[in-house]
Amino acid sequence: MFRFLVSRSIIGSSVSNNFRPRFYSTNEATDSYLLTRLKNDLKDAMKNKDRLKLNVVRGLLSDITYASKSPSAKSFSASDNEIYKTINRAIKRRQESIDKFTLANRLDLVENESSELSLLNSYLPQQMSEHEIELEVVKVIDQIGSDDAGIKDLGKVMKELNLDNSRAPKKIVVEVVKKVLSRKTG
């Protein structure tokens, strides 16, 4: 007991008592909805001993913390939009892993990655269908007013198109824009 007190007092004197990792703070008033949900899910996964959920949520919180401390992301805030981007990156990594594990015929790893992927997808809002994205693209093309819009106008359309990245992944949006623009010229 005495050793603990001595070592605690030595450690306490050299380290600030106010030190807490950035996103594991207990001040939920400043946290975004999604960050609060992730923290609560982490606690629940610990209590329920749900290893899969625990690993996925810890990974997400780690990615969020890393993104906030990255020198290239000085303007990172823990907003829901930034967290959705982080989740989409994690989803993309899982999809790439599934493709590689399938080619290597490692079905056990494919199953694990698929479970993590479905858990990550549960944190995203309802995704827009391609038809909904297409309607938005047509509206933007009409606003731009170019009757002879073609693939060369892809940059203009993407610049004016303001779709939520969490509901419409950029890769799908680009494919839909290309499809609509190619129909306009063809």
Rank of each mutant, 00 (worst) to 15 (best):
S70M: 11
S75V: 00
F76R: 14
Y66Q: 13
K74F: 08
V56C: 05
I64K: 07
L38S: 02
L35Q: 02
L35N: 05
A67F: 13
Y33H: 11
D50F: 07
D63T: 06
M46S: 13
K69L: 10
S75I: 01
S68F: 00
D41A: 02
N48G: 00
L35W: 00
I64G: 10
K43A: 11
S75W: 02
D63E: 12
D41C: 03
A45Y: 09
F76W: 10
T36N: 01
S75Q: 06
R58Y: 07
A67R: 13
S62K: 09
K49P: 04
D63P: 06
K43G: 03
V57M: 04
V57R: 08
R51K: 08
A73K: 15
L61T: 08
L38C: 05
L60Y: 06
D41T: 04
D41M: 00
G59K: 07
P71I: 11
N48Q: 14
K49C: 08
L38N: 01
V56W: 15
Y66M: 12
G59I: 06
K74H: 12
A45H: 08
K69W: 14
Y33R: 07
S68L: 03
T65C: 04
K69G: 08
K43Y: 05
T65A: 15
V56H: 07
D31A: 04
S75F: 06
S68R: 02
M46Q: 14
L61W: 05
S32P: 01
S72A: 13
L42D: 03
N48F: 01
T65W: 10
L52T: 15
L61G: 10
K47H: 07
N40I: 08
K49A: 11
R37C: 12
L54I: 04
A67K: 10
K69Y: 09
L38P: 14
N40D: 09
S32A: 06
D41K: 03
N40K: 12
A67D: 15
Y33E: 13
Y33S: 06
K39N: 10
L34H: 10
N55E: 11
K39A: 00
L52V: 12
S72M: 09
N40M: 09
L54W: 11
T36P: 00
D63M: 13
R51S: 14
A45L: 13
S32E: 05
